[in-house]
């Protein structure tokens, strides 16, 4: 398998405005703190974590929607941070994005058709080609042609999200960043949108970076999953390994918190104490140490664990395995 996208030690720090009042060390908010992973071509790579863990920031940094503080992202071997304007424009065609809330990612003054054409126009596609492409995509998302003349607010969330998928595919990209694409939708609609996304993935051989906090969805959609906590990757594993044989105590707690599927299901529940630490003032050792049920002493509090291989394509950042 070939690697399509690779990040190396990606970091994004924000300077907190009012750090003195907050009384925090140096006023740096470490949203993403040294994240490295590889995404193989044609697979769905999931990023799960709780809110504030930095999962969306990882996605935004990869697409350069926010400039990373440090670290590199390589797309087919090209360093995205160091490429020229022309090269970047060509790469943008190959990397597209779907956001969580379709109502805020469509221009309310444009009709859906205009929004879809706009993407092709900006990237200098031929008019006829744009039209053909949109017609083909409409068939794929199972919506009638006349819905193109509607405005976003006239459509339901599910319909609009299907258009968001179509819009992301107008330029024939190879890579899609899907940032919580179904979190705002009802289950019956969510199922439809996920089915569409996966069927396009099969048809077009897409590679998807799928960011979500919903474990059931991630388990259904992804091939490989990274678990993030406070800006750091805790574990990366093939999906079956993660949900069956997770190694990191945080992954175990997170997955055990997933609600039951059946009332009689007997589940071990690891209730974590408290809520995640502040990213302004993260623990000096392992980020998870203060809440970790398997913490075993000073090492956890002093030294930051690195990702170690613990199985086939399975990595965990925990002192238990070093």
């Amino acid at each position: 398998m070939t690697v399509l996208l690779k990040t190396e030690n990606l970091k994004k720090y924000y300077r907190a405005k009012n750090h003195k009042a907050a009384g925090k060390k140096n006023g740096l908010l470490r949203a993403v703190d040294g994240v490295s992973f590889e995404i193989e071509k044609g697979t769905v790579f999931g990023v799960v974590g709780e809110s504030g863990s930095g999962k969306s920031t990882i996605g935004r940094c990869i697409l350069n929607l926010t400039r990373p503080t440090a670290g590199n992202t390589f797309y087919e071997g090209v360093n995205l941070g160091a490429c020229g304007k022309k090269e970047w424009a060509a790469l943008q065609r190959k990397m597209q994005v779907i956001f969580q809330n379709p109502y805020s990612s469509f221009n309310p003054l444009m009709t859906i058709g205009q929004s879809l054409q706009e993407v092709g126009r900006v990237h200098r596609m031929e008019k006829r080609e744009i039209g053909e492409r949109i017609a083909w995509l409409l068939e794929g998302i199972e919506l009638p042609l006349d819905s193109l003349s509607r405005k976003p607010q006239e459509l339901s969330g599910g319909q609009l999200q299907r258009f968001a998928i179509a819009r992301s595919l107008v330029l024939k990209p190879d890579f899609i960043l899907a940032d919580e694409p179904v979190s705002a939708l009802d289950v019956s609609v969510q199922a439809h949108v996920l089915n569409l996304l996966l069927s396009f993935k099969e048809k077009l051989g897409l590679t998807i970076l799928f960011i979500s906090h919903e474990l059931a969805v991630v388990e259904h959609v992804c091939d490989t999953v990274a678990v993030v906590y406070l800006g750091k990757i805790m574990e990366i594993a093939p999906v079956d390994d993660l949900f069956g044989r997770m190694k990191h105590p945080y992954s175990r707690a997170l997955i055990s918190a997933k609600p039951k599927e059946h009332p009689l299901q007997n589940k071990e529940r690891i209730l974590l104490k408290g809520s995640p630490q502040d990213a302004l003032d993260p623990p000096s050792g392992c980020r998870f140490a203060p809440r970790c049920p398997s913490r075993f002493g000073e090492l956890c509090e002093k030294e930051v664990p690195v990702l170690k291989q613990v199985g086939n394509a399975h990595y965990a950042a925990c002192h238990l395995y070093s």
């Binding site: 289950v187 019956s188 969510q190 199922a191 996966l198 059931a216 388990e219 259904h220 949900f243 599927e261």
Partner: peptide, 19 residues
């Protein structure tokens, strides 16, 4: 139908049934 929409653990990559 609603229960069928929910992704199930160990259900593999089967197509979810939407309404």
């Amino acid at each position: 139908a609603l229960l069928n929409c929910v992704p199930k653990s160990g259900g593999g990559k089967n197509v979810l049934r939407s309404i």
